[in-house]
Design a protein around this nucleic acid. Sequence first.
DNA 1: TGTTTTATTGAACAGTGTTCAATAAGTTTG
DNA 2: CAAACTTATTGAACACTGTTCAATAAAACA
Lengths: 202, 202
Amino acid sequence: MGIAERKQEEKQEMTKRILDGARKVFLEKGYEQTSMRNIANEINYSPGLLYFYFKDKGEIFHELHREGFRLLLSQLMVLNKVADPFERLKAMGHVFIEFAQHNKDYYNLMFIVEVPAKMPESSGFMIAQEAISLLASTVKECQQKGRFKDMDVEYFTFMILSTLHGICALFCKDRTASFVNKTNEELMLHGYECFIALLEKS
Amino acid sequence: MGIAERKQEEKQEMTKRILDGARKVFLEKGYEQTSMRNIANEINYSPGLLYFYFKDKGEIFHELHREGFRLLLSQLMVLNKVADPFERLKAMGHVFIEFAQHNKDYYNLMFIVEVPAKMPESSGFMIAQEAISLLASTVKECQQKGRFKDMDVEYFTFMILSTLHGICALFCKDRTASFVNKTNEELMLHGYECFIALLEKS
DNA sequence: TGTTTTATTGAACAGTGTTCAATAAGTTTG
DNA sequence: CAAACTTATTGAACACTGTTCAATAAAACA
């Protein structure tokens, strides 16, 4: 059955080729501004072919969505070596913000773009949930060391994620203009440091 | 010059008619899903006419954008009667979150949708800045009463806005699925209460 | 070889934002 | 009142969008 094997490999190669093209165009022009024809042109195939490998534009989005989370997770995992949970939590925030700054379009795809179809929990958001869990378990560890007393872990985690996301979303959607005389980097960094200051007193 | 006057009134009426139609369709179907033809149909005029009164879809967006901020501001202004600045600050957050919950599409337009063109600071974001200023001055008042010591007002304000926006943006874009067994309302309310708890200790 | 699967194309459909010549309506002049 | 001029309105057209699908080319199997 060597042929069937090779066939499957070729199919995977084509899938990869499409995703490579899609990623390039997506990250260059953003989600809405990217058309299926753009992607097809990028890899010199006809638009119709994309529908042989993917159900629709949403499914391509979906794949890149997961790719983004894998990338973020890999950067967060590095912090596992930080022993103190509170130090780790603080660093996670920095990594999160830097991820958004350096991967604006991935961030958009992951957290802001309208989710195309109802992504089944089975495949789609599993990886997102993994990132949340990482945050939540760190919060729990902090709590075991006496921090954030009497706080519900889930709500507290949601609040932390909200703050981080708020900082990044305002940045991604250019809603920082009202704060004059400050660069985006300054705003995000010092804004987050204000939040850390709050956490430290708790 | 009675005719010229009436003419101008008629022009304003038509402008209003278009905005009324646009608002209805926009808030029904969201920004991206609304087409110029949809709007034209809604008010029983041809698509081309819209371009006689507005430069493009972006300008209509722009007008509704300001409308949204006027609405939000009017709700925040009610809190001016609250004497204690910290109580007022806390209430502002609640109002902000409730505004997002009840005006999801306005919120989208105001804080999330890609700004079409570079809105000139002169007309476009002036009203947004007004809302920020209201928040900032409340923070400053708090500080004068001894709260949030040694915090930069602008960064601290940005941080608060980020938290609020994060809560609302996750809600608006359906990124709350990772927190199971909790309704959106519970998450948002109790998440915000966690944040208030942090503020109270500061 | 011929038959059957599989992969690929490109035209077509219904939709989008936008432009613009034609026309209708209203106002101002002769 | 009629002609000239402005202004408002139309609808067809352009170039684009995501998606489908019959036709076809290529490869695998018999």
